[in-house]
Structures are given as structure tokens and as C-alpha cells.
Amino acid sequence: MLKNKPKQLGGMIGLLLMMSLTACHEGSSTQQQTQDASAPSQAQSKQQDLPLIQAKTQPIVLPKVEVCEKDECTAYQLATVKTNVDWIDQFFLKRLQKDLPLAFNPPASEPTVSQAAHLTQSSNTYTVRYLGQNANMASFVIESETYNQGAAHGMYHKEYVIFDLKTKKRIMVDDLLQTQVQQKLINALYEANQNWLTQHQVSKDKLEITDNFYFGVHGIVFVYPLYELAPYSDGMTELTLPYSQAKGLIRSEYLPK
């Protein structure tokens, strides 16, 4: 029996070593799984740093609905967005105050009612609307319409405003472009819209890149004001650069995910 004891002891030691190694392996595996599980949550937390825009359009209460100066009276109707992001709200409010100072600060003295009846009547309507969000990019549009008494028709405009929620700044065309590709962009935009541009007698040397753009379903849409590329009856011109042709011209971080 004494001869068997060393064998039994050796077997017990081997069993203990195997159990110890197994425990270490399981502990290491559990720790690795914990680290792997924490990785997605860290990425998600970075995404969660970006606000999910919630917005509604609401009218602005002005000191006066109609403001009269020496030669004309203008009726104002303004509406802006109310979002869950304060700096976006302030951007549009300051923008409207800059564009329409008389609407927010009418003159102290105005013509009498009888005098105002003989003045030119005009109207000015501004509306800010939220369009949507794609990752860190939030899109809005400022729709404006003006009409002056005696004019053949009113004038309207749509200005698209896209914010980078990471930098808290508006994205301009210069931000979109790779370095030194402006002429390549004009060439690509002209080629993608050549039929329409040829029909309207717009040559490539007359085409310029506008700062007014939005991200459409099929590509980046560059929007031109009334009369710039076509007659009033055609409305505002929209030229689309397909996303497939935008690669290499537009920075990848500004291409929709």
C-alpha cells in the first residue's frame, strides 16, 4: 500500500493543477467577454452624445403685425423651429432678426392710418422647418416669400441649412469638398445634368457651385435661386450630383451613412 501512495499523491496534484488552469482560463475568458461587451457600449455612448433632434415650427410673436415706414407698409408673418437643442434655436432666431430687423424693432414713429392707406403695401413671410437627421447631420430649410404691391408676381426662396451636430456648426460647400476639387465638381455636376443644362442654354463655364444644397435620396442637390439658371416659370433650379459620382469629391464624413 505504501508503494501506491506516491502514485495517488501524484494523481491528486495533477488533478489540482488541471483545476487551477481551468479556473484561470475561465477567469480570463470571462474578463475578455466583459471587455468585449463593454466595447459596443462605449461606441454607443459616443453616438448618444449626439442629440436626437425633436422639432416643431411655431409662429413668432412680433411687436406689430404690420410695420409702416415713409414709403411703404410691410406685413410680417414669421415662424421658426423650436427644438431640443438651444444653439439651433438661437441660430435661426438671430438669422431672422438679422434679415428682418424692422419686424423685431419697428420705428418709434409711424405714419397715421390715413397716411398709411396711401403707402405701398408689401408682405414678408418666413418659415423655418425641420427636415430630418442623418447621424451627425441635421437638415432644416428657411422658406421665404415676399410680395410688393404692383409687382407682376411675388418672389420666393428656399435656403437649406445643414448642421454638423459634432462641431455645432453649419456645413458649407467648402466644408464638403476635398482639397482642390471645385472644377472637378463643376464638371461632374454638369455631366450629371447635361440634358437639362443644354436645353436651357447653360454652358459649363457659366455654371458655378452654390452654397445652397441638401442631401437628397439619390445625391447631393444644389439649389439655385429664381432667374439664375432658368426663367421664373421654371422655379428654383435643382441640380443633383449622384452619390456614386460624389466619392472622391465630397469628404466621406459628409456623405450620408
Rank of each mutant, 00 (worst) to 15 (best):
Q58V: 15
F163E: 01
L176H: 01
N105S: 13
S203R: 12
P231A: 10
Q245E: 14
L52D: 13
R129D: 12
I53R: 00
L93G: 07
P111Y: 02
E143F: 04
H25V: 13
H25C: 13
A108M: 11
F91W: 03
S122C: 06
Q178R: 06
L78Q: 01
L78G: 03
L15S: 12
Y76C: 04
N124A: 11
I220A: 08
Y76H: 04
A117H: 02
N134L: 10
F222S: 08
T30F: 10
K5E: 13
N124L: 06
V128I: 13
Y76N: 03
N193M: 03
L102W: 00
Q77V: 04
L185Y: 00
A75D: 07
L241A: 06
Y130T: 05
K204Q: 15
S38C: 07
H218N: 15
T74I: 14
Q121S: 12
T120K: 12
L52W: 00
A23M: 09
L93P: 03
Q199F: 06
D49K: 11
A79E: 04
M19Q: 07
F91R: 00
K3S: 15
Q149K: 06
N195V: 13
H218Y: 14
A43L: 13
A135P: 00
P225I: 02
K168F: 00
D174K: 11
D211I: 01
V65M: 10
Y76A: 06
T83E: 05
L176P: 00
M155T: 12
T179H: 07
Q115H: 02
A117R: 04
Y130G: 08
Y232L: 09
I13E: 05
Q90C: 05
F91L: 08
L16N: 08
